[in-house]
């Protein structure tokens, strides 16, 4: 049954899958069709996973089965037990896990390929971008979750005057690590440095943001995870990842600005708080 493992078949199934994502998302624009739309998108996801498992040479079935089983067992009760009022932080948590997954995949690949040796340059750059943004999204989302869940105080927490320099230093460090890795044969510590610097950025950008602005921030982090997934798709030459990731990246950005508008807040004002541009004063303008 070699035709079953043909990449043309798998890529065709991916086309059907992302058509389902897009159609589902279109249906989700209206309250009446939205429930069905969500399940259409979910069916697309099921198809995409099934198609991926058909790829020739797939192995490690036990570990794959284990991962999917544990993930399913954790997520079903989590999704059904969460209170309606606690939904935003649950979305933040799920979003963070998606970003974390990308960071972990990129790290494992880095370790497995001796620092992306023999990988084409565009794949290395895309993977590093995905790892960086994924790590920011993971740690940023955890802070958003912790704040809304009241594990952390909802009030803005800043490093004071150090906020801006630390932010800048971390971004410079992450980009520097990325450049060193791209030149090839870098030691494993560079990748850890990149992920850690991105983690610090994610933490200190979200910590100063007040609870009232959090939904907008979660939406922004959601868009970032989408972009990160699209970049990973470029690195792995996987169309389903590119399309689904980029649609989320773009629609998430639009959604972020719509949400900010609906709350009478401006995105630059919200994010400026995270970069040390003065404290944000939620709802004062609204």
């Amino acid at each position: 049954m070699s035709w079953l493992h043909d990449m043309a078949l798998i890529n065709s199934l991916y086309i059907v899958a992302f058509a389902l994502f897009i159609y589902g998302l279109m249906q989700m624009r209206g309250p009446r069709t939205a429930v069905a739309g969500n399940w259409v998108a979910a069916a697309g996801m099921g198809l995409a996973v099934a198609a991926t498992l058909l790829i020739e040479g797939m192995g490690n079935w036990l570990l794959i089965g284990l991962g999917i089983a544990i993930g399913t067992v954790i997520s079903i009760p989590a999704a059904y037990r969460v209170k309606m009022t606690a939904m935003p932080q649950m979305v933040a948590l799920f979003n963070g896990l998606g970003g974390g997954a990308i960071a972990l995949i990129s790290w494992a690949q880095f370790r497995d390929t001796a620092g992306y040796a023999h990988e084409p340059v565009h794949a290395v750059i895309a993977s590093l971008f995905a790892a960086l943004v994924g790590s920011i999204s993971f740690w940023g989302s955890l802070v958003a979750y912790a704040k809304l869940q009241e594990l952390l105080p909802g009030r803005p927490m800043t490093l004071g005057r150090a906020q801006q320099p630390v932010n800048l230093a971390m971004i410079v460090a992450a980009v520097a690590a990325a450049i060193v890795i791209t030149t090839g044969g870098a030691s494993g510590w560079w990748m850890i440095a990149l992920l850690a610097a991105a983690a610090v950025v994610g933490l200190i950008v979200v910590l100063p943001i007040g609870g009232a602005d959090m939904p907008v921030v979660i939406s922004l982090l959601n868009a970032l995870t989408g972009l990160s997934a699209a970049a990973k798709g470029i690195a792995l030459d996987n169309t389903a990842l590119i399309v689904a990731g980029m649609i989320v990246g773009a629609s998430g950005s639009i959604l972020t600005s719509l949400m900010a508008q609906a709350m009478n807040r401006s995105i630059p004002a919200i994010i400026a708080g995270g970069f040390g541009g003065g404290t944000t004063t939620p709802s004062s303008s609204g």
Binding site: L25, M28, R29, M58, Q109, P215, N222, V248
Partner: peptide, 23 residues
């Protein structure tokens, strides 16, 4: 519909699981 859409697009970027499966 903003929040459900955010949640729906959030689920769609879970497509990253494909990358983990492939690798």
């Amino acid at each position: 519909l903003h929040t459900p859409l955010m949640s729906g697009t959030n689920a769609i970027h879970g497509v990253v699981v494909l990358a983990a499966l492939v690798v």
